[in-house]
Amino acid sequence: MSDQAFDCSYFVWLVLKTINPHFERESSKEIAADRLNFKPIFGIPEPGDIVYFPSAQVPAEVRKGHKKMYPAHVAIMMSSSEFMGMQTSGPGRVQVPDVWWWPRPKEFFRYIGPAQ
């Protein structure tokens, strides 16, 4: 993670900076652990909620290449059936459920930190 790396956490940080210009960048794992700025959401996520996919083993049926583990990932829910985030090919929307993302363990968080 660096200020020059445009990865999933950087994408989420850019979005959150529109709400709180003083929000400091956090990794995907730090976002999931940050209870001062994020609260866990149980049930159906709302637009603007953060979806966090912890690092996990890739099921054999969706394995791409030699990748054996998924890295952790964060994105922003656009609706209960779509999220947007940084993908391998760049920023993109993902319709859910899908075979690559949705079978993975996931958690949802809502930003509760300060606003401008």
Score class of each variant (00 low, 15 high):
40 P>L: 05
100 W>T: 04
43 G>K: 00
40 P>S: 10
4 Q>S: 15
47 P>I: 12
87 Q>D: 09
82 E>V: 08
31 I>E: 07
100 W>L: 03
58 V>F: 01
10 Y>I: 06
14 L>D: 04
93 R>C: 13
28 S>G: 14
18 T>F: 08
4 Q>E: 15
78 M>S: 01
114 P>R: 05
33 A>K: 07
57 Q>N: 07
84 M>V: 11
116 Q>C: 06
49 D>S: 08
62 V>I: 15
50 I>R: 05
83 F>S: 08
71 P>W: 02
15 V>H: 02
33 A>I: 03
70 Y>G: 03
59 P>V: 01
39 K>R: 15
3 D>L: 15
107 E>Q: 09
57 Q>E: 15
23 F>G: 08
65 G>R: 11
79 S>P: 07
99 V>R: 02
83 F>C: 10
104 R>Y: 08
95 Q>L: 11
72 A>E: 11
105 P>L: 06
66 H>L: 13
43 G>S: 10
114 P>E: 12
73 H>D: 00
71 P>C: 14
17 K>D: 01
56 A>M: 09
63 R>G: 13
108 F>L: 13
91 P>C: 06
53 F>L: 13
101 W>H: 13
60 A>W: 01
75 A>H: 09
114 P>W: 05
114 P>S: 13
17 K>C: 05
109 F>T: 10
8 C>A: 14
115 A>L: 06
79 S>C: 03
53 F>V: 02
41 I>Y: 07
100 W>Y: 15
70 Y>C: 00
30 E>P: 12
97 P>C: 08
82 E>S: 06
110 R>Y: 11
109 F>E: 06
41 I>R: 10
94 V>G: 04
8 C>F: 03
29 K>D: 14
93 R>S: 05
37 N>P: 03
38 F>I: 09
58 V>A: 03
32 A>L: 02
34 D>S: 13
74 V>R: 03
81 S>V: 06
91 P>R: 01
28 S>R: 00
22 H>I: 11
14 L>K: 13
76 I>G: 00
99 V>N: 11
77 M>V: 12
15 V>R: 02
116 Q>W: 14
63 R>S: 04
67 K>W: 00
92 G>M: 09
97 P>A: 08
89 S>W: 09
7 D>E: 15
19 I>L: 07
70 Y>M: 04
52 Y>F: 14
105 P>M: 04
72 A>P: 04
57 Q>K: 06
48 G>C: 08
89 S>M: 11
9 S>F: 07
97 P>S: 02
96 V>C: 02
41 I>F: 05
113 G>I: 08
67 K>N: 10
30 E>G: 10
58 V>Q: 01
48 G>Q: 14
14 L>N: 12
16 L>H: 09
115 A>W: 03
101 W>C: 02
61 E>C: 01
95 Q>Y: 12
49 D>M: 09
70 Y>Q: 08
55 S>L: 06
54 P>K: 01
19 I>T: 09
13 W>Q: 08
40 P>W: 03
50 I>L: 10
113 G>P: 07
38 F>Q: 10
43 G>F: 01
25 R>V: 11
88 T>E: 13
22 H>N: 13
54 P>C: 07
90 G>R: 06
49 D>H: 11
34 D>P: 12
78 M>C: 07
80 S>V: 00
112 I>W: 04
69 M>W: 11
